[in-house]
């Protein structure tokens, strides 16, 4: 990727009216990924997908094409552009992508699409969703076990059903440990800025600490970084989300509710390359290792063996189906 080669490519694309056809070269495997608003380095959901794609690149040496959408119209536009370019598999990250994937997948029935967090019922679309409520339940239990005041809290990004699913699972986990435990729930805002406003996250967390909370779970993208920062500064405990965020403030982050978006993205690329890619809907829960609570050297001192034993027992019951966690989306409200 020297400058001159870039320049030559650019000049060529200029001459051919921007349509540098990839088919002119020998056809290599071409995976592509479209990130949602928030960007690929949001330290959270999109970054999880990015990590999966990067891992694939490292292991196979195959480069992938990506795009970060900036507004509603661009989802469909660039999904189509990637399909036109002959991408072998297009991973669309985020539930907002679903309607656009549906449209474009109909136009390009030969192109494979994997949509993460959304569901599209088409033969050439693979839909991967996660049982966030199960993971949130476990971190809720851990929060209640680690809390000294009996009050814990939750900071969400935008007030949308997905985030309510996190909050609902979390609340159930807390109540499972302490039936009289108190859960304070706040949402950071009503615009997409709610995903990228760490200052607002800090403010909300501080007000929750004033109301007695000593463990806070942040499911709010970059806003969550402000929440974790506030918890670290105030000597309280934070809980990260999506990616493992334990390392951000070692010893101050109780755990992270890990959503293996990276696995979903990596497997979409890998199976498409191997030829084992399959359409259809999959939900990744505790049983499928799609969600989990993070344990590493950064939170080893915070999680006692008793806590771990309790969580492991609960996880085993959820996997076996003997312990039910209510899903906000199924129950039309947080009823359990």
């Amino acid at each position: 990727m020297t400058l001159s080669r870039r320049a030559a490519v650019a000049a060529l694309s200029l001459l051919t009216a921007g349509f540098l056809s990839a088919s002119a070269q020998a056809k290599d495997f071409e995976p592509a990924i479209v990130f949602d608003m928030g960007g690929r380095f949001d330290k959270s959901f999109n970054e999880g997908a990015n990590n999966g794609a990067e891992r694939f690149k490292k292991e196979t040496g195959t480069n992938y094409r990506f795009f970060e959408v900036q507004n509603e119209a661009q989802r469909e536009q660039f999904l189509r552009r990637l399909a036109e370019r002959g991408a072998d598999v297009v991973v669309a990250v985020g539930f907002s992508m679903a309607p656009s994937v549906e449209k474009v997948a109909k136009e390009f029935p030969k192109t494979r699409f994997t949509v993460i967090d959304g569901v599209v019922n088409l033969p050439n679309v693979q839909s991967v969703t996660f049982a966030e409520h199960e993971g949130s339940y476990l971190v809720g239990m851990l929060a209640a076990l680690a809390s000294k005041t009996g009050t814990v809290s939750f900071v969400g990004g935008m007030d949308i059903p997905l985030i309510r699913r996190f909050a609902c699972g979390y609340e159930q986990g807390v109540k499972a440990v302490k039936a009289d435990g108190k859960v304070i729930v706040n949402m950071a805002g009503t615009t997409p800025a709610a995903w990228s406003d760490p200052t607002r996250g800090t403010e909300l967390a501080k007000s929750q600490f004033d109301r007695g909370s000593d463990v806070v779970f942040a499911a709010a993208g970059q806003t969550g970084l402000g929440v974790l920062q506030a918890a670290a500064d105030a000597g309280k405990l934070g809980i990260g989300v999506d990616s493992n965020q334990n390392h951000l403030f070692p010893g101050k982050v109780l755990t992270s509710m890990v959503k293996r978006v990276d696995v979903a993205a990596y497997e979409a690329f890998k199976t498409a390359k191997d030829g084992t890619w399959q359409g259809g809907a999959r939900t990744l829960g505790l049983k499928e290792d799609g969600v989990d609570w993070a344990r590493d050297e950064h939170n080893a001192k915070l999680v006692t063996p008793e806590m771990k034993a309790k969580l492991d027992a609960a996880a085993a019951e959820i996997k076996a189906g003997t312990r039910k966690v209510a899903n906000y989306s199924d129950t039309e409200g947080c009823k359990y």
Binding site: L3, R6, A7, V9, A10, A11, S13, L14, A17, G18, F19
Partner: peptide
């Protein structure tokens, strides 16, 4: 940032009016 400005701005113009 180490990119070719003529090609990049050309891509912008072509992207907006080239098709």
């Amino acid at each position: 940032i180490g990119e070719d400005p003529v090609g990049a701005l050309g891509t912008m113009v072509v992207g907006a009016f080239g098709s």
